[in-house]
């Protein structure tokens, strides 16, 4: 439908939020139109190609995000996206993103962290973050397959001694041995890739207590 372009202020803060190659375009409604029945239309552009492309599922929508993961799934290329707001017969000019380079800009989600405790040990098992999948039944690709030099920073905090130390590992298991028994340790892990600065998402801090020292437990009985 034709509309009077420029009759509305543009959407603001238009940006790609990318985590593990799931690339979602987000924006804020035009400042003065909070609450109005505004709809939006999105287009995207593959850098170096010839024309802007539409995504039918993101035409005349009233939400303020659009999942462009499929359209931007070739992470070796770069992209632009743009949004315009429409309300009644008026519409805004396009608001455009900066150039988006998934390979360099996607955030690496945290690994899954499983802790099992022993008397004086904690076993840490990591599950690598997975790349976004088009369909749930698609085969899994781990982010490590895209970034072979992906590493993990494991931070360990001894709540009794109030000491923190960290270790950088590349494999997926780490056993902390000869810990103090009956002591609460907190563990946090972040995946990182040596390269241009990139947002990092650490895992949630998990705290577990080592078991009671069996030797002293027997003496007590």
């Amino acid at each position: 439908a034709t509309c009077v372009s420029g009759g509305l202020p543009q959407p603001t803060n238009i940006t790609f939020i990318s985590i593990n190659m799931q690339n979602i375009l987000r924006w804020n409604p035009p400042a003065e139109l909070q609450g109005a029945e505004v709809t939006y239309t999105v287009q995207y552009f593959i850098y170096g190609q010839k024309k802007w492309l539409s995504k039918p599922e993101c035409r005349n929508i009233n939400r303020t995000y659009c999942d462009l993961s499929v359209e931007t799934s070739d992470y070796e290329h770069q992209y632009y996206a743009k949004v315009k707001a429409m309300w009644e017969t008026n519409c805004s000019r396009w608001a455009e993103t900066t150039r988006f380079y998934p390979f360099l800009e996607t955030q690496i989600g945290p690994p899954e962290v499983a802790l099992t405790t022993g008397e004086k040990s904690i076993s840490i098992t990591l599950t690598a973050p997975e790349k976004w999948k088009r369909n749930p039944e698609d085969s899994t690709v781990f982010m490590q397959q895209i970034y072979p030099n992906l590493k993990y920073n494991v931070s360990v905090y001894n709540t009794k001694s109030k000491r923190m130390w960290s270790q950088s590992i590349t494999n997926h298991t780490l056993v902390l041995s000869w810990l103090e028994p009956s002591t609460l340790y907190c563990v946090q892990v972040e995946a990182f890739i040596p390269g241009p600065p990139r947002l990092i998402q650490p895992s949630h801090k998990q705290c577990v207590s080592t078991l009671e020292d069996q030797a002293s437990a027997l003496k007590v009985r």
Binding site: N158, S161, R163, W165, L179
Partner: peptide, 9 residues
């Protein structure tokens, strides 16, 4: 150079 229990830090 410090230690946290048996751990050399």
């Amino acid at each position: 150079v410090t230690k946290d229990g048996f751990h050399l830090v």
